[in-house]
Design a binder for these strands. Structure first.
Lengths: 149, 149
DNA sequence: CCGTTATAGTTTCAAAAGAAACCATGTTAA
DNA sequence: TTAACATGGTTTCTTTTGAAACTATAACGG
């Protein structure tokens, strides 16, 4: 068995390099223009979406590990973007919410992020866009299956 | 304009987290089982595919920057996986090829990598797989357009 | 020719990331 | 109770990464 493999046809490579290029491109918006990092951006979105979350839940919603979340939360707290409310039931944990300032930042970034995504997706028809997301869903699902056994 | 954005519907996030999960999963093969890193793996594939390349060309074929390539090449040279042949026309550059040992490693990894990919893609029909790659192609293309202006 | 500029590749430095150890609190079961 | 274990979150340490500086050579323009 002497298989040949072409990077261009190899899904892990294709996915990785696409994601990388997207990241770099998009980073220009929230890193350079708004001064936040990717983990901070994700945290911002998660909190705006769910209102009040513990770090652990942020991690779950953003596919980040707890260290990354911890650092993002710390830095955002410093910047005044979010505030912690202690949890009575469990003094180790804290509930986090966006401050008005955090929400304000969110409201300024989102339109730009969405506009950027729209430009990226512009050449794809509605059907293609739907197909793309559906394929991503299936792959996510499949990965979960594979890692569980 | 007060848009809402959901991470789950945001392509940059979806792409990134999928790529990340794929990487971690696949890394078990070539990192743990064969002791090479991702940049080394990509270099291995590029060289096996094109025969003899300069670092610069490896970079072009693998979407890695020259620093990453340089390190991969250095480490692979140490491990005896590739050999350099000086270039007459330009003494700064060198032509790189896989050694027999490098080829041997390649031949051992490839079947496993392909098998893994096949398992990942198993739930997708032929049409879906084709659609997936075609969509990735289009997005790659689009990114090139976007970054050029 | 010779000075400027470009290029191949390496090295250095600083930022980002993850693994593992850690701290403090909570939970469970003897 | 209280001893073992689990959990939320932080810190520490090491590895990976990329940007920028650097070295050496090549190409170009006057």
């Amino acid at each position: 068995m002497d298989d040949k493999l072409s990077l261009q046809q190899f899904l892990p490579y294709r996915c990785n390099s696409l994601a990388q290029r997207i990241s770099v491109s998009l980073a220009r918006i929230y890193v350079q223009k708004f001064g936040i990092t990717v983990p901070e951006w994700r945290t911002l979105v998660a909190l705006s979406e769910y209102g009040e979350l513990q770090s652990k839940q942020i991690a779950a919603h953003t596919s980040m590990d707890k260290v990354r979340v911890s650092r993002a939360v710390a830095s955002m707290t410093d910047k005044g973007l979010l505030s912690r409310r202690p949890c009575d039931r469990d003094s180790r944990a804290a509930f986090l919410t966006l401050t008005e300032e955090g929400l304000e930042l969110y409201r300024r970034i989102v339109p730009e992020a969405l506009a950027w995504e729209e430009r990226l997706l512009a050449p794809l028809s509605e059907q293609e866009q739907a197909a793309l997301f559906s394929l991503l869903d299936k792959l996510d699902l499949r990965l979960a299956e594979l890692s569980s056994d």
